[in-house]
């Protein structure tokens, strides 16, 4: 499905909305040998006005996320709300169960003996915060998704090994099937290729 361009700028496509019935273009993928050149390329592409981009690296390279305009993740809020929900519902569950649902007199202690409800309230907080972290991460990242167009590229599988990739999506307003690969080629990549849906 993927085509490695012999030299950037020699494509002769018709843009992302190809009416000739060919495969739809997902975007452009540039391959870099190390994190530093990827960081530089991402910053340059950002400065050139590209906005619908992503980088793909074997380990987190925070500078590229900054350059992509994603300085802070939402996960803290997600997990905080999850944990708060768990703590409140855990406490209320114990309160209702032991004070109303099945009120049990143990040695004359009050039915609402809140200090003994603290451990389970804490455990429920940790449990729901962690689960909301897992499911929130998957939901926000759109995972699991096994059929992403980038996997159509033969080279892309080296992202998890020793290569660093910059992808520019065709949905980017500045994307152009000829100019974008040519621009990426100026950033000293190992290769530039077009990726199809």
């Amino acid at each position: 499905m993927s085509t490695t361009l012999p030299a950037p700028g020699t494509t002769h496509g018709h843009g992302p909305d190809d009416e000739a019935g060919g495969p739809k273009v997902y975007g452009c993928l540039a391959e870099f040998p190390d994190a530093d050149s990827l960081i530089a390329a991402t910053r340059a592409a950002r400065a050139a006005g590209y906005s619908r981009m992503d980088t793909h690296t074997p380990y987190p390279v925070g500078e590229t996320a900054d350059a992509l305009g994603f300085p802070k993740s939402e996960m803290g809020v997600v997990m905080f709300i999850g944990g708060l929900t768990g703590a409140c519902s855990g406490f209320l569950m114990q309160y209702w169960d032991n004070a109303y649902g099945y009120s049990l007199n143990v040695g004359g202690r009050p039915y609402f003996s809140w200090p003994s409800f603290v451990p389970i309230t804490f455990e429920m907080m940790v449990l729901t915060a962690s689960l909301s972290g897992l499911f929130g991460l998957m939901a926000l990242c759109g995972l699991p998704r096994l059929n992403h167009p980038l996997f159509n590229s033969e080279r892309f599988e080296r992202f998890s090994k020793d290569r660093f990739f910059l992808s520019v999506e065709a949905e980017d307003p500045r994307f152009d099937r000829e100019k974008t690969p040519a621009f990426l080629a100026t950033l000293n990549p190992l290769s530039v290729e077009e990726v199809f849906e």
Partner: peptide, 15 residues
């Protein structure tokens, strides 16, 4: 279907 996206990594690190 992990694809090492910078945005995913940022969320991942936080979690």
């Amino acid at each position: 279907g992990w694809r090492g996206s910078a945005i995913h990594w940022r969320r991942y690190e936080k979690v």
